[in-house]
Nucleic acid binder design. Structure first.
Lengths: 254, 254
DNA sequence: TTTGCATTATTTGTATACAAAAGCATAATC
DNA sequence: GATTATGCTTTTGTATACAAATAATGCAAA
């Protein structure tokens, strides 16, 4: 069959405005697709198929997948390809623990360092997020909520924490996509706005308190307590997919 | 010139015992070389040269460098190759801030979760570290000290924190290599031993206190206050090397 | 001697070809 | 009928070839 898309880097406009090299574009597209739930956890990500879709060689796809793998959004199984990660309940708990830690530090630092421009950008993101949820685009909403937290990390002016946050936010979005209990969700934009207020007034204690409550609300909405009773074999056994290898001891990746 | 080394994966024994695929081996070798100061900050890492040394194609080297880049040990400059990272004083401060945060959490979790086997492994590492410093192998000592902190992270049983710690420890080692004031250094193994004692007796407060003092001692040994007055142009302007690009706005990589 | 430009050479970026491994289906055996 | 064997297909891993970008060199001019 012929190449699906002659596109070089066209859809770029609608997505995260990355700098423009091919593999960044591919990375951003796959990333967004996962976070917007257009790619379900467990989905196989074939290198050749993706290459054909984006009109690039496997080399590029491979680099994008490797990066996604390092961030924990994709699971790379040696000789067996990549799949969209599907965090277990235990993994989810660990991720939330780490995230509280990082968010607390980021909040304190942001109170200290955030500029007026950055606060304005944050407000812009929140209103965009709100617009998404209003028009019912839950996927984009989740992604934008993540971008808010990432931008906040940038305002904290600590490079390692930004990197950690990128990984944590991505994985959290995946968890939300996987575990959030049915109902309409995420009025988080309101909490985001109040958080910006506290940061703007340089009230560290208040800001941290709001952030911690925000974290509580996020994982309060998940039904992590009982994992079971899914009718989907993939989901049920997803926690085995990574470690199942013929090596005697379990693989020690991550 | 002919291929330098016919070796497939021989020296593996002496280094980090990684699972054995080619790019893991290459990764570990470069990583260790950097942490043991056999590769100085700023050193250019040519793909072809490395490929010839290890007897593999650029494909493998490229993957290893990409991974090192993601961990912050190597700086990847688009179209201009990779160099060993040389963190500025400001970057060093950020790394230490993040590391305190992570080490504190890891210590608390390790008190809760560390098994007897893991504590034994930690003690083994410390004695090996001590042996290195006794015999004057400072490079290997620094690396083993890092491995101690990494193993401690594993004992904390939180996957994201292990990943963060890997990156932070690597970069810290680089900073120590770059900034540690002359004298003989790192009697850290004693502090490590007392830390294990506190963890073994499940005394969280004591363990955290020891860890925080340990962190104080590490960055107390560095002369971060005054960066300047080097007679080496490279060192003076090293903090520019990454961002110097022709793009109008500074590159926003990390 | 230094500065600017053009040409050459080196190095990285990407695609592709080949090798190896894993998955799949069919077939043979118990 | 279930289970294991075996060959075929698909997919990943690695090397290499070619294109593009960057750095180096030499020369000319100020």
């Amino acid at each position: 069959m012929s190449q699906q898309l002659p596109l070089k880097k066209p859809t770029r406009a609608s997505k995260s405005p990355r700098s423009g090299t091919q593999d960044d574009v591919v990375y951003a597209h796959i990333f967004d697709a996962i976070l917007e739930q257009r790619l379900a956890p467990g989905t196989k990500l074939s290198e050749e198929a993706l290459g054909e879709i984006f009109g690039v060689s496997r080399t590029i796809i491979r680099r994008a997948l490797s990066r996604l793998g390092h961030e924990g959004v994709v699971l790379l199984r040696p000789n067996r390809g990549a799949v969209v990660a599907s965090p277990s309940v235990e993994e989810a708990r660990q991720i939330f623990y780490a995230r509280r830690l990082v968010e607390k530090a980021i909040t304190e630092l942001a109170v200290e360092h955030a500029t007026a421009e950055q606060l304005a950008e944050l407000r812009r993101l929140v209103s965009e997020e709100q617009a998404c949820f209003s028009r019912g685009d839950r996927g984009a909403g989740i992604r934008l909520s993540g971008e808010f937290h990432l931008k906040l990390a940038e305002a904290a002016k600590n490079a390692p924490l930004v990197g950690f946050q990128r990984s944590l936010v991505s994985q959290t979005s995946l968890i939300i996509a996987q575990y959030e209990s049915g109902g309409r969700s995420h009025c988080s934009y309101d909490e985001h706005n109040r958080l910006i207020d506290a940061i703007e007034s340089r009230d560290a204690a208040k800001a941290v308190e709001l952030m911690m409550h925000h974290m509580d609300h996020i994982d309060g909405k998940l039904n992590l307590e009982e994992e079971g009773a899914s009718d989907d074999l993939h989901a049920v056994f997803s926690h085995l997919l990574g470690t199942r290898k013929k090596s005697p001891r379990g693989a020690d990746r991550l």
